[in-house]
């Protein structure tokens, strides 16, 4: 597809997944109005793995991630051209309701965004939404423990979620997202507001989560990618012809990307020559 202002010709070498794929994401083009944000990127998210997205600012890694549970549908001018196969259905299919997609594919955002309700209600929100019939309290406690925030909040579950500090709020949001045990968890720079200790805890959580679920992680922190991601996708920005279009440069096992990158651009980025 080479309509509108094509800003580049490069197409990354196809990454061959080694295990089963849960989200097979084939982006042809993503537009915001006339602005072409991302082009030609095939990024399969493998089951029971953490897939990291790295790349310079504005490369569209968040855009791609947010396309995976149709969050971008909230933006009127957003247009997705391509397909994302999830359990042999295209989540952009005509018959698919974005609301249903988001119940199976959860999301943690860059900035903490707890609801103005109690800590307990925040975590129970998804359970109630999904009509969970079992022991609600047990699931809430379990989610809070896994998100490494239980010790901070166990004595004040009735307090507002907004009364917590920024780092605690973010872990609360993670607890809220994992309480319903979504099949896939999308994390958009979840640690950017966290201190090093909380960051480490969240990273451990991601590794733990992948045993049962699949995680897609956007990060600005390359060390984080090396620590938790099994597979890493590097996206670049094409600024030729005045545009700013992101595209997949290289995707491979994380150690391969960081130790033996095939593309010059990836090498330069890994070495910290631009960001």
């Amino acid at each position: 597809m080479t309509s509108l202002s094509d800003t580049g010709e490069f197409i990354a070498k196809k990454y061959e997944p080694k295990g089963p794929v849960v989200l097979d994401c084939q982006v042809n083009n993503i537009y915001y109005g006339d602005f072409r944000a991302v082009r030609d990127s095939h990024i399969p998210i493998e089951k029971n793995k953490v897939t990291g997205f790295i790349g310079p600012s504005g490369c569209g890694k968040s855009t791609v991630l947010r396309s995976m549970n149709r969050m971008n549908d909230l933006i009127d001018s957003f247009r997705f051209d391509g397909s994302i196969q999830y359990h042999s259905n295209d989540i952009y299919g005509k018959k698919i309701d974005p609301v249903v997609v988001r119940r199976y594919i959860g999301m943690v955002f860059q900035l903490p965004n707890p609801f103005s309700m109690s800590i307990y209600d925040n975590v129970a929100f998804g359970l109630r939404l999904n009509g969970y019939k079992g022991d609600e309290e047990e699931m809430v406690v379990k989610a809070l423990k896994r998100a490494a925030i239980w010790d901070d909040v166990k004595d004040k579950l009735k307090n507002s979620g907004l009364s917590l500090s920024g780092g605690q709020q973010q872990r609360l949001c993670i607890a809220r997202a994992i309480a319903t045990e979504p099949d896939v968890l999308l994390m958009d720079e979840p640690c950017s507001a966290l201190d090093p200790i909380a960051t480490r805890q969240v990273e451990e959580l991601m590794v733990e989560l992948k045993e049962h679920y699949s995680v897609a992680l956007v990060t600005h922190n390359m060390q984080q990618a090396t620590r938790v991601a099994d597979v890493t996708a590097f996206l670049g920005v094409d600024i030729s012809k005045g545009g700013r279009t992101g595209y997949l440069v290289e995707m491979d096992d994380t150690h391969k990307i960081f130790e033996d990158p095939q593309q010059k651009l990836t090498q330069q980025y890994i070495r910290g020559e631009f960001s």
Partner: peptide
């Protein structure tokens, strides 16, 4: 970002308004 969080949980528009926006 609050609205985004509510939709991100897979809430319908009505649930977003009634359960999140109104209390907020």
């Amino acid at each position: 970002r609050v609205k985004e969080a509510a939709y991100g949980m897979g809430a319908t528009k009505w649930e977003v308004i009634l359960k999140v926006m109104l209390p907020t």
